[in-house]
Amino acid sequence: MPTDRPTAAELVEAVREFLADHVTPNVEGQLAFHTRVAINALAIVERTMADGGPMDAAELERLKDLLGQDGDLGEMNAALSRAIRSGAMDDQRGAVLDHLRKTAEDKIALANPKYLIQRG
């Protein structure tokens, strides 16, 4: 990826700001709704570009520990899904659930951070 500015993230940010500041005030009904959806989608892309890399790396490390094998994130998630389905992970439920919860929290932090329930 080019490192020249604007970076890809800065371009996405500019489009999101354009939609919010210049399109939103001038549309209504279905178009206003879809504009809001589009703004949310771009915000997800921005958060993913900023924080997704380290999250993926941490998820992959957890999957290696859990499954005792190596592969890319897609292969490892497919392997975990198959293992849960077949019952092969039934004796490690606690560890599986810890991993899945952490992964789901990361996904929410990218998709909709307001949705996270803060536990005290």
């Binding site: 897609g74 998630n77 497919a78 975990l80 899904s81 198959r82 849960i84 389905r85 899945l100 992964t103």
Partner: peptide, 9 residues
């Protein structure tokens, strides 16, 4: 593959 949903199933 969606491991969280698999766990739910």
């Amino acid at each position: 593959p969606q491991a969280g949903f698999e766990y739910g199933f």
